[in-house]
Amino acid sequence: MTLRTLAASIALIVLAAPLVWGADPPAEPKAEIQDRIEQLEKQIRELKELREKQLEKDARTRDIKEPCVAAVGGADVCSCLAENLPRGVDFVTYVRMMSPAKDEVDKRVLEMVKAARERCVK
């Protein structure tokens, strides 16, 4: 269901509800109608923001998981890493951080990466 369809469905429900119960729709002041419209628009914006965040999360997971599976072959480990690595750490960065030369690595991020690895690699 698209956001446009959802918004249209909500608007129809709000407008048709009084007709379903056989009552005449109450005459609402324009301010109340405008308030309802603003609330629906706010809900639509929030749904769009949630959808955008989910798309970003899906892209991040894909960007980590696909090269990981190609290199490691373990889909479970790669899925776990994709969900647990800190933001800004892709698979190539993960491999670089886990390699012996760690002098240039932020120690705090390195600890987060190690924690993700311990959680995923058994």
Rank of each mutant, 00 (worst) to 15 (best):
T2D: 14
T2W: 07
L3G: 12
S9L: 06
S9I: 07
I10H: 04
A11L: 12
I13S: 01
A16P: 03
A17L: 04
A17N: 02
V20Y: 03
G22C: 01
D24W: 00
P26C: 11
A31S: 12
E32D: 12
D35H: 00
I37Q: 00
E38D: 11
E38G: 02
Q39C: 03
L40C: 00
E46T: 08
K48Y: 08
L50Y: 03
E56F: 03
E56V: 05
E56P: 06
A59S: 07
R62V: 14
D63F: 01
D63S: 14
I64F: 14
I64K: 11
K65A: 09
V69P: 03
A71F: 05
A71I: 03
A71Y: 07
G74N: 14
L81T: 12
L81K: 12
L81G: 12
A82C: 08
N84E: 15
P86V: 07
R87F: 14
G88C: 08
V89A: 14
D90K: 11
D90H: 06
D90E: 09
F91K: 07
V92E: 15
V92P: 07
S99Q: 12
S99A: 14
P100T: 15
K102R: 15
E104I: 11
V105Y: 06
K107H: 08
R108D: 12
R108M: 09
V109D: 04
M112Y: 04
A116N: 03
E118Q: 10
V121L: 13
K122D: 12
K122I: 10
